[in-house]
Nucleic acid binder design. Sequence first.
DNA 1: ACTTTATTTAGATGATTATCTAAATATCTA
DNA 2: TAGATATTTAGATAATCATCTAAATAAAGT
Lengths: 94, 94
Amino acid sequence: MNDTFKALSDPTRRQIIQLLKERDLSAGEIAEHFSISKPSISHHLSILKNARLIEDVRQGQSIIYSLNMTVIQETLGWFLGMMGTKGEDTHDKS
Amino acid sequence: MNDTFKALSDPTRRQIIQLLKERDLSAGEIAEHFSISKPSISHHLSILKNARLIEDVRQGQSIIYSLNMTVIQETLGWFLGMMGTKGEDTHDKS
DNA sequence: ACTTTATTTAGATGATTATCTAAATATCTA
DNA sequence: TAGATATTTAGATAATCATCTAAATAAAGT
């Protein structure tokens, strides 16, 4: 969970996620949307990947990135938990 | 939005939010839950307050902190937007 | 094999951040 | 007003982070 929030704390990374919401993109296509260097974008991608917010598959010379909705849903769950009944148990849903 | 995500990127601050979910607490009561110094907790509180995730009212010598659900809901909305239909417009709901 | 294209890795640097101790401020009570 | 309690502000420091350029790796085409 910490890796997820850390990954989401950077505006460039959130924007990458928003781009990937529209469609899967190669690292180069992602980089085109920003004015920072490709190595920096690559670094951001590795942080997002490490947090499992995105996934990558090689396709020829390119590497295609896509969203992993599972982790996004889990994080959304954290916020839903925050809005439950006051004093409600966070974890145990039995 | 950036202040919110930045504020949520620290585990101590997320834990503070979880404590305040249970009930309103004074700065001192919050500090008791952690092994870091009171000035450090005060600093975390000011970041959360600056992000408008929490609010404070003075009550005698103490200052009582509480959650601001509005901003939490807004952030939850960001995640919901992330899970909408692929290609859906992010902002315009007309 | 060599060249081009796509991407990542390495190493460095400046900025931001979490933390600390010491000092300041604010409130209450005697 | 003096002393006690609650909290914040100031200033310092060590760690983390975003970014850069240069070099390395990987795949494809000639």
